[in-house]
Structures are given as structure tokens and as C-alpha cells.
């Protein structure tokens, strides 16, 4: 299940939905990304998330498909919000279910690393001193590189 939406999501609800009607799941790892009130500048008041509608859904589906190819998973729920968000708001949810915890931990980590470097989302931060587009981080690229197969 992949969703790009402006509305907030409820982690508990997504967690329950992932497990609904099944008893073969041994582990669920849920990652939630939140809006910080500091980033490249202090006093971040909010941010706008833009995306490339159409390509976004495609890119997220590719990432989940790749995770399912690499690990044995029993379900993935991925939600990314767009539009205006304020500090403390949840931005992204990755919930991965598997029979064993290692697969769930690694697949969740992998999905976030690839999402950060491959899915067409852009953040613009609004601070007390003005607005600016968040620049890419080298550490995100390095994190994604860890999953490259030689």
C-alpha cells in the first residue's frame, strides 16, 4: 500500500491495518519521519512539500518492489505527505511486516534510504528569516550507497 496525501496519518491505524487478519507476521518495524523545528536554519515554522505527481507514485512503487525482492516481507505500508506541514507533523511512514525482525529492520532502513535519494519530493522550509529550498545531503547519498550490490 503506497499513498501520497496531504492529510495526516495515524501510525496505530496503519500498524493495525498491516496486521489485520493475519498471524504469520513475526515482526513489524514502523518508521515515522517528523518535521523538525530546526534544520539548515533555526526557527523553522513550517515547510511545503512539493512532488512530481505520477512519477512519485511510480518511484515509491519501484522502491517497495526492490525491497520485496531483496527481503522476504509480508507487507509494506508507505505513506508520504505533501503540501504545508508544521513542526511536529508526521511527514512519512514506512511500516514493514516480516516473519523475522532482521528482514523488517533492514527493509525499512533500505526503503527510507532510497526514498530520500530517489523519490521526487522537494522541501521548502519557512523560517522567521525567510523561505528556502532544502538542499540535498551528502550523508543521504552515502546512506543509499550502502545498499548497492557489487
Amino acid at each position: 500500500m503506497i499513498k501520497v496525501q496531504t492529510q495526516p496519518f495515524d501510525v496505530g491505524e496503519e500498524h493495525r491495518a498491516l496486521l489485520a487478519g493475519r498471524t504469520d507476521v513475526g515482526a513489524v518495524v514502523c518508521f515515522t519521519g517528523l518535521v523538525r523545528d530546526f534544520n539548515e536554519s533555526p526557527e523553522v515554522q513550517g515547510l511545503s512539500l512539493e512532488h512530481y505527481s505520477g512519477m512519485t507514485e511510480q518511484a515509491l512503487a519501484d522502491i517497495v518492489r526492490e525491497a520485496e525482492r531483496r527481503w522476504t516481507l509480508q507487507g509494506v505500508r508507505l505513506i508520504h505527505r505533501v503540501g504545508h506541514l508544521e513542526p511536529g507533523d508526521p511527514i512519512v511512514l514506512v511500516a514493514v511486516a516480516s516473519a523475522h525482525r532482521r528482514n523488517a529492520f533492514e527493509a525499512c532502513d533500505f526503503i527510507m534510504d532510497y526514498l530520500k535519494t530517489r523519490a521526487p519530493f522537494w522541501k521548502k522550509e519557512h523560517t522567521t528569516k525567510g523561505h528556502y529550498w532544502v538542499s540535498e545531503r551528502n550523508s543521504d547519498k552515502q546512506d543509499a550507497k550502502r545498499w548497492e550490490v557489487s
Binding site: 512539500l49 512519512v92 530520500k116 535519494t117 530517489r118 523519490a119 521526487p120 522537494w122 540535498e136 545531503r137
Partner: peptide, 8 residues
């Protein structure tokens, strides 16, 4: 065309 992505 777009700049490097910064979602998540």
C-alpha cells in the same frame, strides 16, 4: 528537470 530530491 529538477534539483536533487529532498523528501522523507
Amino acid at each position: 528537470f529538477f534539483p536533487p530530491v529532498t523528501g522523507g
